[in-house]
Write a protein that binds this DNA or RNA. Structure first.
Lengths: 224, 224
DNA sequence: TGCCCTTTACTTGTATGGAAGTATGGTATA
DNA sequence: TATACCATACTTCCATACAAGTAAAGGGCA
């Protein structure tokens, strides 16, 4: 999530504004469809409109905002199409990664550790902690397969899904999710590629049933 | 490639500048590592720096340029890592799409037609036409599977690969590529999911052998 | 001759003013 | 009362000026 950029690039004000808004959107603080205003935000943080404007442009590139010339800028609604597309891609890619992992003697300790974190977070009802650990679990799988760059690419696609999750997490019990994670890990430890692939696909298909429910509960947050 | 935007959104100047540069970069007119200058381009097309600057920001978001504050803006070099990552993702996703297609009675006429186009383009040595048709062939597969949004996502990831292809196409004979395309189509027509998946994977793994050769021939265009 | 420091030119970053376009509410008119 | 028109208050877009920082060339000095 917080992609620790290795090279310490000099960070501009516009960059910081972008990162700040990006985070707020993904966490759901800025709800889909909400209006953004260059002048409002500029005043709010004591800057001119220019860096704010440039932040907006980058948010639009991220697919998180929509700039309508001469009309206004709005937080993008969650595109069901984009969520389903990202889900399909994740299923295809992560099931391949799981197969690769099952065929080698990989280090699965990080994934193991995250499962414990998720147990605690679920017991304590700490939604944010659970989501963060969930991400790290999947990331760890990519890293164990030696595909850090792949995970970075997936993360870009995942942004729409992430906003969705912040809503769904408050609705669903996550013990089922943890069980699915454990099934994946067990299959990998057993070096059973077929079982691992099946577990990954089953896990990621969970969203197919959740998405319509969430969308029905928040119809104004979604677009097809 | 030229994603015909369905809604006729009002296009700003900055948007046009971005599209123009985007195309030039992907076609290789602006080589990796080349320097871009806000003022130069602004003068060149009779505008102020502002819209050009905003175009640069979006190119950076696309991963095609790098803005180094107070230092300069450069066309991004081709990241071997990004190419390999996109390739792995394509293989995983497109092999899944092929399986989906093999399991249904899909319309494969567009793919068939593109094969003829590729034959002609290869015979005439028309590199640009071949690349365009190659893209449409793969896009047609996604469309036939009812996954237009997935192809859009893949296209974003493909940008690094596309620049590579404009170089490789001048080096390699493409009849082998056409044969691989035909193998995919034949398997789909036979409704043989296993064969289709194998054909897709074999086709997309071709790049694993081509990338090192291209990189060796143009070492200054690449970064790891 | 070689090294260090200063100056200068050039880069992108930010601030501000006005231009162009849109939406809205009020007003005159039928 | 309903409708068409117009003034007004917004929005983002573009142009311009200046600020901050970088890099490189040139001069002074050992």
């Amino acid at each position: 999530m917080t992609d620790a950029t290795l090279i310490a690039r000099p960070v501009t004000t516009a960059q910081q504004v972008h990162d700040w808004l990006h985070q707020r959107i993904l966490r759901g603080d800025l709800p889909p469809g909400a209006r953004l205003s260059e002048t409002d935000i500029a005043e709010q943080i004591g800057l001119s409109r220019q860096p704010v404007r440039e932040a907006f442009i980058r948010l639009a590139s991220d697919g998180l905002a929509e700039v309508r010339p001469q009309r206004g800028t709005y937080i993008g609604k969650i595109s069901a199409r984009a969520v389903l597309s990202a889900r399909l891609i994740r299923e295809a890619v992560e099931s391949d990664l799981a197969r690769m992992l099952a065929d080698r003697d990989a280090d699965l300790s990080t994934m193991e550790a995250e499962l414990s974190v998720q147990d605690r977070a679920n017991a304590q009802g700490d939604v944010a902690a659970f989501i963060a650990s969930d991400d790290r679990f999947h990331q760890a799988m990519a890293l164990a397969a030696g595909q850090a760059a792949v995970w970075q690419d997936l993360e870009r696609l995942k942004s729409q899904m992430n906003r969705l999750r912040h809503m769904s997490m408050r609705v669903f019990d996550r013990s089922e999710t943890i069980g699915q994670h454990r099934a994946i890990l067990t299959a990998l430890q057993a070096r059973d590629a077929d079982a691992a692939e099946a577990a990954v696909r089953a896990h990621l298909r969970q969203m197919l049933t959740e998405l319509p429910q969430i969308a029905a509960a928040h119809p104004d947050y979604f677009t097809d």
